[in-house]
């Protein structure tokens, strides 16, 4: 009798402890998502026509939202320097272009990137927390974050523990994000859900809510290492989570689709989705980013095309 009682007391104790940390999340359980409805909505977005001045304005806005990214095993100091140079000199043949928002690298390149970008106004973002799989201990993840922030990263892109999420260990996921957020200090935290590994819109929504409630400054779709990466439907699901949180709290959370966005038309459709879902306050690189490597050049080509009326060739735009 006694051991059973103790056991149940113990359980209860744990239960309350868990609730304490995740109260906010549990008070607002995630709604489910209707996939067909989401697709219908996206169809309406993609059937919009974006042209003339709207297009030019949108292209420039999109360019300003790019996190220019290199996350390869083959990355070198030189490669990072070249990328940072590109970030500051997108296409000097055309003056008056905006810069990208940030350069996104592995932690060990943050120092290099910081040096290159000094005074440019372009942030350095670093992936951390055992990117891209997240399969490591919290200690290692925290150290990863510390290395990046110590080196001056203004933004940290962490990955959630998808395995734990699938196991239903939502409290674990929540607590991990909250702990990392604390470790980030002044750096802004982007939480990568890796939607391609979550398997359904319902789970994307749930992961979004957990990340938001745990303190994410941004939620981000993907690492870019898994397919599918960012899609318009998945982004809409995440924007809806941001919107509901905003309705409840008045607190803005940013959105970063990453991976698979390589052409301008698609980028503009993302912007339109943001415009019609969250409005003006999110149409700035403070609250919306594209994680992409080749998008910037396509945006540049389209901007030049819009201004000259002449279709462009890739040979005239620098690749770094």
């Amino acid at each position: 009798m006694l051991p059973t009682l103790l056991f149940s007391l113990n359980l209860e104790f744990n239960f309350f402890r868990m609730i304490k940390k995740t109260t906010v999340y549990l008070n607002n359980p995630s709604p489910s998502v209707d996939q067909v409805g989401i697709i219908d909505r996206i169809d309406r977005i993609t059937s919009r026509s974006i042209k003339d001045e709207t297009k030019l304005q949108g292209l420039k806005l999109a360019l300003n939202m790019v996190d220019l990214t290199t996350l390869e095993g083959a990355d070198t100091e030189n490669k990072v320097r070249q990328l940072c140079n590109k970030a500051q000199h997108l296409h000097d043949a055309y003056p008056g272009l905006p810069t990208v928002a940030a350069v996104c690298v592995y932690p060990n390149f943050v120092k290099t990137a910081k040096q290159c970008l000094q005074g440019s106004g372009i942030n350095v973002a670093s992936v951390a927390t055992a990117f891209p799989s997240g399969q490591s201990s919290l200690e290692v993840k925290l150290l990863d974050v510390k290395i990046a922030t110590d080196a001056g990263a203004e933004e940290i892109d962490m990955v959630i523990s998808r395995g734990k999420f699938h196991e239903g260990e939502y409290n674990f996921v929540f607590d991990e994000i909250a702990t990392i957020k604390e470790a980030c200090g002044k750096s802004r935290l982007k939480v990568i859900l890796e939607t391609g590994e979550l398997g359904s819109f319902d789970k994307v929504r749930k992961a979004s809510d957990i990340a938001i409630e745990a303190g994410a400054d941004f939620i981000k779709t993907s690492t870019g290492k898994i397919s599918p990466a960012a899609t318009l439907p998945v982004t809409l699901v995440m924007l809806e989570a941001i919107k509901d949180h905003y309705y409840r709290t008045g607190i803005q959370v940013g959105m970063k689709p990453a991976g698979g966005i390589s052409n301008s038309k698609l980028a503009l459709q993302y912007l339109l989705l943001v415009k019609e879902t969250l409005g003006k306050d999110w149409l700035t690189n403070q609250w919306f980013r594209f994680g992409a490597s080749s998008l910037a050049n396509d945006l540049l080509m389209q901007i030049v095309k819009q201004q000259t009326g002449v279709y462009q060739s890739k040979d005239y735009f620098s690749k770094d």
Partner: peptide, 20 residues
């Protein structure tokens, strides 16, 4: 309480050009 003041601003200044 803050509820009422939270408002999404759809006046984005980025309006769609006519596409007839």
């Amino acid at each position: 309480m803050t509820k009422k003041t939270i408002k999404i601003n759809f006046d984005t200044g980025w309006d769609l050009a006519p596409a007839p």
